[in-house]
């Protein structure tokens, strides 16, 4: 079973630097389960979906920290610790901005199409688990397991 050391990254808390973190997250996603060496179309689809959903969740949390915790001031820092294993990725995101009341997020609208306020719901839907501990420092924990393809399930 592949085991990797935690990988850390610190970036300024500005949306301008989100892409730097996203590229790191994407590269770490490719370590999960060694899927990068399996080029079958099913595995590539699983990899693309895993990458896309994890990056989506991460982007929403990064936005939340930069825009809300730090008030869009472009000051402060966001720290990431990425811990990949053979079939799971855990990313801890730490900030020292304002705390966030995750329980105050209203449920997603059922009938009307929303034009905002969907970030936390998207993050939750993309992950197996999303945890938040108010600080300081505030800590977000994003966890997602790599899905097994049909051959692995047999």
């Amino acid at each position: 079973m592949a085991k990797y050391p935690p990988i850390t990254l610190r970036v300024p808390a500005s949306l301008l630097y989100r892409d730097v973190a996203v590229r790191s997250i994407t590269a770490v996603c490719h370590l999960i389960g060694g899927k990068a060496t399996d080029r079958s179309s099913d595995s590539l689809d699983l990899q693309r979906t895993f990458d896309g959903e994890f990056v989506s969740a991460f982007s929403e949390i990064f936005n939340n920290i930069a825009i809300h915790a730090y008030g869009g001031s472009d000051e402060g820092e966001i720290s990431l610790t990425m811990t990949p294993s053979s079939d799971q990725l855990l990313v801890e995101i730490t900030d020292t901005g304002s705390t966030f009341d995750i329980d105050s997020v209203p449920p997603p609208p059922v009938d009307d199409l929303p034009e905002g306020g969907m970030g936390i719901h998207i993050a939750r839907a993309c992950l197996d688990e999303l945890k938040y501990e108010p600080g300081p420092p505030n800590v977000w924990r994003l966890t997602k397991s790599f899905p097994k393809n049909e051959e692995q399930e047999e």
Partner: peptide
Amino acid sequence: DLIDSSGVAVLVALYK
């Protein structure tokens, strides 16, 4: 190469 909830909101606004 990337869309977030704000981007989805743009498409919803355009659709509406």
